[in-house]
């Protein structure tokens, strides 16, 4: 504990916030893309089946 730099709390908070928010943005964008791709595939498949049936 004695080796910690001065004002380490401020440094840790800055890095945690910046890296945490960046990771959150990246992961949520990735999940959104995956969800939107799956939904589009499902809707396209459904409309294709309807087209074939008609």
């Amino acid at each position: 504990m004695t080796n910690l730099p001065a004002h380490w709390q401020y440094i840790a908070a800055s890095y945690a916030l910046t890296l945490g928010c960046s990771a959150f943005l990246a992961i949520s964008a990735m999940l959104r893309l995956r969800r939107s791709k799956a939904r589009l595939a499902a809707v396209e498949g459904h409309s294709r089946r309807r087209g074939t049936a008609a």
């Binding site: 990246a26 964008a29 990735m30 959104r32 893309l33 969800r35 939107s36 791709k37 939904r39 589009l40």
Partner: peptide
Amino acid sequence: TRLSAAIHE
């Protein structure tokens, strides 16, 4: 990534 998702949506 967000823009690609928005296009799919």
